[in-house]
Computed example of a mutant assay.
Amino acid sequence: MSSKLSVSIIGAGNCGCTFAVDLVNRGFDVLLYGHPHHRRNIDAIRRDGHLVARMAIEGKFHPTLATEMATAVQFSRFLVITVPSYGHDDIINELKDFDLSRHIIVAINGNFFGLACSKELNALAILETNASPYASWVQKGEVLVGGIKTSLPIAAFPNTLGEKHWCQIPEIFPQQLQWYDNVFEIGMQSNNGVIHPIAAILNTGRIESTKGDFFFYRDGISPSVGSVIEAVDRERLAIADALGFQLQSVLQEMLGFYGGNFDKFSDFAFHTSVHNATNATPTQMQDRFVAEDVPYILVPWYELGAKVGVEARTMKAVVEISSVINGVNYFESGRNLRRLGMDQMSRTELLQFVGNATCHSPWSSTAVLNPAPSATPSATRNR
């Protein structure tokens, strides 16, 4: 390896491939890891000899490729995990046998990853973001980068390490990082958990009969669906408030990312050009809109609410209906407090566990997306 800063990207999907081309484009040494059982994109890059990017990033790029975790761990002390949440356990199992005491792990989207692996990995620190840095997707072997956010929320677990340990982290990201106090705040700020499951289950018949042949935002989020989204969002904000966090509503966050001036989420959904450029609709109900966002976001939200005395009835209903639809008890199989080892903790103990320090600045609500010229992105998968 050269003397340039190196980064290992764990996961060769939409976000992983985009992060790889962006880092190579900015002069980093990059390794892109694909799991041996999920190596389609890795094999395609090897076959073509390069990774092609279009729109906000243009060119042919040549990251180092690997399907062995040992190679990724040795390549860099920065490990950026971009796999979906239901792939986290596989990654944790692969990493737990390595000495990671000098490594910093960044999980995108985190969804309480740091808490899930706190007893398994001995990493120096684990950082989580609540979204992807990019609006991007991989299509026909090409990375299409519709836009790059100008700001990204992030938090560290534990959050007691000094700046010297992660002072290079801002160099890795293409936008300004806004540091939250702890990973509970990041986990509670996921807009995917508010939007995706509700719009999916309230359009179940349409998804199954058309195989997703409609626009998820414009057609799927009617005023009534938008009202349910807003109800779950109010419950999320109440849980966050009981934990001591003042967070943005999902509408405020989306307007900050993409612009506009709307009072109702359904109006934003109908008018957003970014999300309506393609339909981006699940073709079946086992899609990650449900299979990831319900068990790994709504379940821990609901259980945290129960812990602090917030009755989130609409959120509970969404989890239970999703469980019936997919024949899975998401409350049992999801990222619940028992699986996180936190079911016996009080509110005070929960906050002490994640480190309720106040040394970082809160996130500004002025973040916007920088779209590529004449881009037609679908940002619902990678926000």
Rank of each mutant, 00 (worst) to 15 (best):
L31Y: 01
G162Y: 01
W166Q: 06
L23C: 14
L121Y: 08
P153I: 07
A277P: 03
A53L: 02
E185H: 09
V228Q: 06
T160A: 13
I198V: 15
I172K: 09
L350D: 10
T281V: 03
S323A: 03
E311T: 14
G162V: 07
T64C: 11
Q252M: 11
T210L: 05
S322F: 05
T366W: 00
D267I: 06
C167F: 10
F19K: 11
E235I: 00
E208F: 00
C167S: 14
S323Q: 06
C17W: 02
V290I: 15
S346W: 00
V73T: 11
N41G: 00
I297T: 09
Y296K: 05
S224G: 00
V308A: 13
I221D: 03
I154R: 11
N261Q: 13
R206I: 05
E253F: 03
M315V: 11
N336G: 07
S209P: 00
H37K: 13
A123K: 06
A131H: 04
R77C: 08
V232Y: 03
I229Y: 02
I57N: 09
H103W: 06
V228W: 00
P371Q: 12
I45H: 04
A306Q: 15
M342C: 14
S227V: 01
Y33N: 00
Y296G: 07
L177M: 06
